[in-house]
Design a binder for these strands. Structure first.
Lengths: 316, 316
DNA sequence: GCGGCACCTAACCGATCGCTTATCTTCGAC
DNA sequence: GTCGAAGATAAGCGATCGGTTAGGTGCCGC
């Protein structure tokens, strides 16, 4: 029984799939399957079995998953305790949906670190489905994105989802357009567009955009640039494209079902299991400084510009 | 960071010595030292450092030892949970001082298992110093022996420590003899005689018995048999040698400082961390059945006679 | 200052871990 | 009935684990 095996088991249980767990851990699927097999043999119990809706816990698995989760959590706590005892900066591992990771998280965490000091933040990308499991298993400390069940989620920021395109496109000037007005047009999205649980993914589904029309770009900025070049339409967060719209590079399409007003949430484990840095971050989010940092977000600051005591690194 | 490493670290911290931890784990001393070195490197902290009184925790070690202990505990809990989920009998690992392991524990645990069923008991030997750490780290569930600090100890049974020898020896017939009356005589003891923290060890110390005069036998019964053959004197529990004394094979020496009235204790972790079987055993100890079983104890029943659902095995 | 004890390090060895790619099973959907 | 997707298994690989014996190293008591 190794911690790696326990981690694999817990993630399979939480995500309901070996493949998803493997992806969350960043390893191949047989690696997870193998770890699971080893743990199964060691404990003499199947732990999780194939069910109609993904992998389901066996009777034994149900009893063990909580214990296993605690063990994995404690391992992380042990490392954090040592860091703290040695006066090293606290680690704050944030996962966010792609748009937040690109535009909001960097400036937010920079402002946070400048305020409280002695914090080393890193930002990772995750799908909505992964985020909950990652935080619960302490593979991450904070999740920024949609509301998450099983965690303490709190609204962090309002945003408005619109669809933009280059001026002079098919819908330009129309007051109100049905969805099919953009049929046959490419949808230029970032990673979150491929995540069916994200807001953008939901929008694409509601508009019945066919798979083949979705073009995934490595960043939101790249997708918008392509839209400005007339390659298609792009979902966008209103205030993040405000500057481009203002100077006429992009226009907001009056598409049916848009704009969508939504909320971004911050999600963490419950208060009694939080590290001090996490608690401080949650408090910080309520301050005007945080609000300002989130809105300033323009994605123009390259990641590499940040220096100690904050290292903002992006891991996928 | 592996569970083996954590286990080694916690035992070193609790026992204050690498050597003692190695002995408790039944491995060589470099094995523990190596595990410790690996954990030190992984965490980047010395964890325990040589102090004037054994190995002492570093600042980081202090923070980690509790966490590490929890992890080890949870690992044991996970295995127990699986056993339970599969309807397997609960495991009850008892450690006892040598005399208890030889005479009291087998009949006591047999009676207990007969009463509650679905329990698989095993008995191990340990020195008084080891017992506390073994129970706290869940390497054992119950300790039978002296009162233990840091655990919930409860008196289990009174006993009287006397010194016996063959009739017609140097002290025969004397009403009261000073300790030096047996100077130059061999002291025939079992394993607990070599444990300075045990009652017998304390008695030998008080009587200033020189090391060279202490002969350690593999079992109490063997020591008494040797005493009956006139090879020396032996500390003994009064009611356990009552039969031999009654039929004249041994006589109780009227040695100064004896008899000693003492208590055997049962020690476990606190109530909220106990497994059901442990709680049941503690309750059982208060019953007349248990009293009778403990006093019936005569060591004459070979271990192999016990059948399922109780396997009483002795591990050292 | 010199044993001796306790701990650490070195060197080595077999077993296991953790990961990969490639190939079967298995089971549900159409 | 067959196809596809998801999981399990196989084979192979380097790294690590966990253990051993042998040989330092550092501190204490005499």
């Amino acid at each position: 029984m190794t911690l790696t095996q326990l981690e694999a088991f817990v993630l399979v249980a939480r995500l309901g799939s070996v493949k998803a767990a493997a992806q969350a851990l960043g390893v191949s699927e047989p690696a997870v399957s193998g770890a699971l097999a080893a743990l199964r043999q060691h404990l003499g119990d199947p732990l999780v079995v194939r069910g109609p809706t993904g992998m389901a816990l066996s009777a034994g698995g149900q009893r063990v998953v909580g214990i296993a989760s605690q063990m994995v959590n404690l391992a992380v706590e042990a490392e954090a305790a040592i860091r703290h005892a040695q006066g090293a900066p606290e680690l704050l591992r944030v996962v966010a949906t792609s748009t937040l990771a690109e535009f909001v998280a960097p400036s937010l965490l920079t402002a946070f670190a400048a305020r409280v000091g002695a914090v080393e933040a890193s930002v990772g990308l995750a799908t909505a489905a992964e985020m909950s499991a990652l935080v619960q298993e302490r593979l991450a400390d904070v999740a920024l994105g949609p509301r998450l069940a099983g965690l303490e989620s709190e609204p962090m920021m309002r945003y408005r989802l619109v669809v933009v395109a280059a001026p002079g496109g098919p819908l330009a000037g129309r007051a109100r357009a049905p969805a099919r007005g953009v049929a046959g047009v490419d949808w230029l999205v970032d990673a979150s567009g491929a995540d069916p649980d994200s807001e953008v993914g939901g929008l694409l589904r509601r508009l019945r955009v066919p798979e083949g029309r979705v073009k995934v770009f490595p960043s939101q900025a790249a997708a918008w640039a392509a839209a400005a070049d007339g390659h298609g339409v792009a979902p966008a967060v209103a205030h993040l494209v405000a500057r481009d719209v203002g100077r006429g590079a992009l226009v907001v399409l009056p598409l049916e079902g848009t704009p969508i007003d939504e909320l971004w949430y911050v999600s963490t484990v419950s208060a009694d299991r939080r590290s001090p840095a996490v608690t401080r971050l949650r408090r910080f989010l309520a301050t005007p400084d945080a609000m300002q940092a989130m809105h300033r977000a323009d994605g123009s600051v390259p990641v590499s510009r940040f220096r100690p005591p904050v290292y903002v690194t992006i891991w996928s």
